[in-house]
Amino acid sequence: MSDATRPRLKVLAAMSGGVDSAVAAARAAEAGHDVTGVHLALSANPKSFRTGARGCCTVEDSHDARRAADVIGIPFYVWDLAERFRRDVVEDFVAEYAAGRTPNPCLRCNEKIKFAALLDKALALGFDAVCTGHYAQVVTRPDGSRELHRAADMAKDQSYVLGVLDDRQLAHAMFPLGDTETTKEEIRAEAAARGLFVAKKPDSHDICFIADGDTQGFLAKHLGTAEGDIVDEAGAKLGTHSGAYGFTIGQRKGLRLGNPAGDGTPRYVLDISPVENTVTVGPAASLDIHALTAINPRWCGTTPAAPGPYTAQLRAHGSETPVTARLDGGELHVAFDQPVRGVAPGQAVVLYDGTRVVGSATIATTQRSTPGPSGA
């Protein structure tokens, strides 16, 4: 059974002020559910959260969400979760970069805010489900258990950032946009036909709490500057940097190295050591990863009982790659059928069985196809 065939529910629709969440709320109401709209105030200074089409959660977005709710004909509220967002998302983001890891704040927001803080409050107030504009599907099996699946339209699938949802959260999640193959242009046309002002509103992008899109500047403000060395795989100094947190595994641009590699090939970031404050660079071939270990696994349903073949996705807009995965205590060990690149500690690895999301975990270490500078 999909979202569209569920019985009448009391639904809390999270409305960001964008077109997707507005159409999702409208579809939920049209399906006969008792819908209430809510906008999450996630910043103590919301005017700072938008520059052009960047980000979300501004006063402007709150007004847009309210106007959409008025058109749909549903009650609307603004809930202040700024302190929880600061602690669980923004501070976590800064701490992860300080530790040399590359976090995904959208995934953390879904885990800690939209389907934890928001859902808990919704259930306490008597709501049955939280509705969002994510492109994914919750499917109910004959035995009553629920599964998270990719969206019907793979081009818009957002199941990767929902891979942190557990069975309890899936039982109260509703994604009205996920089971129809509708282009974004058609979603906008639907919004216009419903009289929703946000039909032509640009999509938000990048990190909502970094208003100008300058992640390195944001981190420098919070972590300060600390000059360190940029070295090659043999440890020879090639240049300096003003903060190891300003780099990510696989990065090519912005290294500012005066001398090219001896063979003229580009250099890429291979390793980041916050303790030694060094950044190691080298050739693209040294980025090849054949296995990883991930921690804090979260399962979208039943915990896998035995090692098995899956596919894995390593970033929000990445492709799938075949893997073999096994659990060992609280760790997930993933071996790739073919080497992959651009894998960094702190990222999430999300496992799939066909279109079904099995679960996710946070990458702790990687194993290179050729030995890395620190055995990473």
Rank of each mutant, 00 (worst) to 15 (best):
R6P: 03
V11P: 06
A14S: 15
G17D: 00
A22E: 08
A25Y: 07
R27I: 02
A28R: 13
A29I: 07
T36Q: 13
G37D: 00
H39I: 06
L42A: 05
S43Y: 12
N45G: 05
S48L: 14
S48P: 01
T51Y: 12
G55Y: 06
C56E: 15
C57M: 13
T58E: 05
V59L: 12
S62Q: 10
V71K: 11
F76N: 09
Y77H: 13
D80R: 11
R84K: 15
V89G: 05
A95S: 14
A98R: 14
G100N: 04
G100M: 01
R101Q: 10
N104L: 04
N104H: 04
N110R: 03
E111H: 13
K112V: 13
I113T: 04
K114Y: 08
K114Q: 00
L118A: 01
L125R: 13
C131I: 06
T132L: 06
T132P: 01
G133M: 04
R141I: 00
P142Q: 08
G144D: 01
L148P: 12
M154Q: 14
M154K: 14
V161F: 00
L162R: 11
G163N: 08
V164W: 02
R168T: 09
Q169C: 12
Q169P: 02
H172L: 00
A173N: 10
L177P: 07
T180W: 05
K184Y: 03
E185S: 14
E186C: 08
A189W: 02
A192D: 04
A192V: 01
A193N: 10
K200I: 01
K200H: 12
S204N: 14
I207S: 05
I210K: 04
G213A: 03
Q216L: 09
G217R: 06
L219G: 03
A220T: 12
K221M: 08
L223Y: 04
A226V: 03
K237S: 10
K237M: 04
T240K: 06
G250Y: 03
Q251E: 12
Q251H: 09
R252A: 13
R256P: 03
L257Q: 08
N259Q: 13
N259H: 08
G264Y: 03
T265K: 15
V269P: 07
P274Q: 01
N277D: 10
N277Y: 07
V279E: 10
V281F: 10
A291T: 01
T293K: 09
P297W: 07
W299G: 03
G301P: 08
T303R: 15
P304I: 07
A305C: 04
A306C: 09
G308F: 12
G308I: 11
P309H: 15
Y310P: 10
Q313F: 00
H317V: 08
T321H: 14
P322A: 11
V323M: 04
T324M: 10
G330W: 02
F336A: 11
P339E: 11
G342N: 10
V343L: 14
A344M: 01
A344T: 05
V349G: 06
V350I: 13
V350S: 09
T355F: 07
V357Q: 10
T365R: 14
Q367D: 14
R368A: 07
P373D: 07
A376M: 06
